[in-house]
Amino acid sequence: MSARLPRRAALRLARGLLLLGLAGCAGVGPQRLDLDQIGYADALGEGLKRQMLLNMVRLRYADVPTFLAVSQVISGYQLQTTATAGLNAYPNAAPGNYATVGGTVQYTTRPTFTLTPVTGQRFAQSYLRPLAPAELLSLAQSGAPVDLLFRLGVQSVNGLPNGATSGGRAQEASGGFLALMQALRQIQSAGAVNLRFERQQGGPRVFLLLDADHAPAATAVRQARQLLGVPPGTREVEVVYGRLPNGRAQVAVLTRSVLQILYELGGRIEVAEADVRRGETRPTDPGEGLIRIHQGDREPRDAYAAVPYRGRCFWVDAADYRSKGAFSFAYVLQVLAESGQGQPTPIVTIPAQ
């Protein structure tokens, strides 16, 4: 752009353009880093939530789940500014034409995203492999609700069955399993969940301390020991994978895989009656589940997570704290299963020029 201005105004404008260019070049890096760190973190989080919800819906309709990992994000920025100024002196200067000023500003952004499908051995190791009992207990010791973790990631404890979906029909958890979860939750609330780990060549071993001397949780500890069949005088038991224990001082935990967790949560998704009549899916069994996922023609604006599928919308209500908690911890278990299985860690590269 170019214009002819009075001398004082032109000089002021030229100085302003020069300062603007210098400030832009100096600030684009730090400013964009702050904005991109928050922006990409939010976008990645929302995308992963939607992908997990979509897989729940697809499993609800006997469809194939898909997992796509974000392996790299490259976002490049370039800011170019130029400014020119000229002064017309006597005798060439005419009244009202003492100076000329011109300048250009160019801003360019080129984001690039690399997405990697999770297939083959990585898929089997991450989503078909049952979770290790030590992984669940480690999360519980870190403060995650032990009852919610077990309701999500466990099929049974010492033969006490959790709620499950079999043949499209939901089966409620046994009374013994629910009583054990309540006792473990009370023990955790009292800060009395104690674990001991042993690292061996065949894998880590984990032991659960069940000491009734802890006053705030003494009653809950005694109840847990009774439900687990712990012999009198045994202070700690080894937690092993399986349906039933092999020894007297063991607790057998039959865990689920990530795909099983998504299938179980998807089993309680609300579906349209027309879809059931056409045989696309089974009706939703009544009863209270860990999560409630709605369906309709259009999702609300403030949905916690929402996805379209076959002309319908499915979403988790933002005001449903219980469902959001179950959804979030299911995602944590998925991340835990993916860790150490060769999953690419997202790399964000932001070059600024």
Rank of each mutant, 00 (worst) to 15 (best):
M1N: 08
C25Y: 13
L35V: 14
D36R: 13
L44D: 10
G45L: 12
L59H: 04
Y61R: 09
D63Y: 00
V70N: 13
I74C: 02
N92A: 13
A93Y: 09
V105S: 11
P117F: 05
L131G: 08
A134W: 01
G143H: 04
G143P: 03
L149R: 09
L160W: 07
E172P: 08
G175M: 01
A179T: 11
S189P: 00
G191W: 01
F197M: 10
F197R: 12
G202N: 08
P204T: 13
F207D: 04
L208Q: 06
L210Y: 08
D211G: 05
D211F: 00
T219N: 09
R222N: 09
R222I: 06
Q226A: 15
G229K: 08
G233M: 08
V237A: 07
G242R: 05
L244C: 00
L244V: 03
P245C: 06
Q250A: 09
V251I: 14
R256V: 07
E264W: 02
I269H: 08
V271E: 10
D275F: 02
R277Q: 13
G287F: 04
G287N: 01
L290H: 03
P300E: 06
F314D: 08
A318L: 02
S328G: 14
Q334M: 15
V335Q: 15
Q343L: 15
Q343M: 14
P346E: 05
P351A: 04
